[in-house]
Simulated scan of single mutants.
Amino acid sequence: MKTKVALITGGYTGEAEVSFKSAAFVQAQLDKEKYAVYPITITLDSWFHVTDAGIKISVNREDFSLDIDGDIVMFDVAFIILHGSPGEDGRLQGYLDMIGLPYTSCGALTSALTMNKEYTKAVISGIQNLYVAKSVLLFGPDRQGAGDVVQKNLTLPYFVKPNAGGSSIGMSKVKVPSELQEALDKAFDAANTGCQVLVEEFVTGREFSQGIFRNAKGELLVLPATEVRTTREFFDFEAKYVAGLTEEITPADLTEEQKERASRIIRDIYIRLNCKGMVRVDFFLEKDTDKFYFIEINTIPGQTPQSFIPQQVRALGMKESEFYAELIEAVIAPDPTLRT
């Protein structure tokens, strides 16, 4: 009997467009002989599945089931590929926990925590060989005097970004004081990001992104790193999704010592944050000091053909179909110790 997979996509933010592309790629890779995959779209207005015949079926939110011509479809596992809220901030995970449906991502608490960049930095503080940029966290009531607070505590240039956003939406690099207020307003006004803004001192160096996942045997496997080189000021939304603006090198050109150090750091981050499934850690390797600086962690990484994780999976020598199957089997494995 095939494993019934709810492939959850969509979302409440501007990242929904990327979620649809990611979900389409995952669906195309999954073994159709082994998995019966049902794409489920979640929006602010509705939760639904569209059948092969083009019929829109609403999800029964009491148990996350589908009624297709009188046939009640109950799922064995949810494959969450919904970037941003509610798939990456713990809301969806909390709901799935309540109805008892296992899923492929981090749990509700970890998801909620890691959507908050500054709170995440506080938890991972102290990990050996990992550094974090000096920063200021601003809340909605602080908006009036935010510029003064930033300039008093930090040294230019700054990175200004929503504290709970994704895909670099609402992010700016500030090089002179006159640019600061516009950058703060842009970050505060970014939709569905919680009205918190994080301002960090700029770290000069090479930028990397690296995935890690737990396989069906319960083993933690670190994927090869990707180095990001962009013609933009930084790796913003356009750099991520507009062709030709960014060069991505996978596997990255790192020394063996740097690879081993990064691997240890990423494993420690995964364990410290109690992650599950696949996650991706972004970091800088600071120029001159050779220190790894944490940027952020992404618990629902993009899965388009050009996304970092698929690149890294291929560099590891795996097929994407095998990789996604590992994520599913790790969740439904009969041995509960493999789910920790």
Rank of each mutant, 00 (worst) to 15 (best):
D67I: 10
S125M: 07
A191C: 00
V242E: 11
I99T: 05
L66M: 07
T340R: 14
A23F: 05
V331P: 02
K186Q: 12
L180R: 06
A325D: 13
I265L: 07
S178I: 08
L156Q: 09
P224N: 01
I265C: 03
A122N: 05
F213Y: 15
A315M: 07
G14L: 09
V50E: 15
T155Q: 13
Y35N: 02
L156G: 02
L198M: 13
G166Y: 02
T110C: 12
A243R: 12
T230L: 04
V197T: 03
S172F: 07
M278C: 15
A183R: 03
S307E: 03
N192S: 14
S209V: 04
F283D: 02
F202V: 02
I212L: 11
T289I: 07
S167F: 06
A330F: 00
L154E: 07
K173V: 13
T3C: 13
T9R: 04
G87T: 05
E118S: 15
I249E: 09
L327M: 14
E227H: 04
T13D: 14
G54S: 07
K4A: 13
R214G: 01
R232V: 03
G126K: 08
E182N: 13
Q311C: 04
L316G: 00
V136L: 12
I42W: 03
P310V: 03
K34C: 08
S168I: 03
K319R: 15
D253V: 14
G165A: 09
L130A: 04
L180T: 00
I8P: 00
K121W: 11
I265Y: 05
D335C: 08
K287L: 05
I297M: 02
A108F: 13
K319F: 05
M318D: 02
Y35V: 12
R143C: 03
A164C: 14
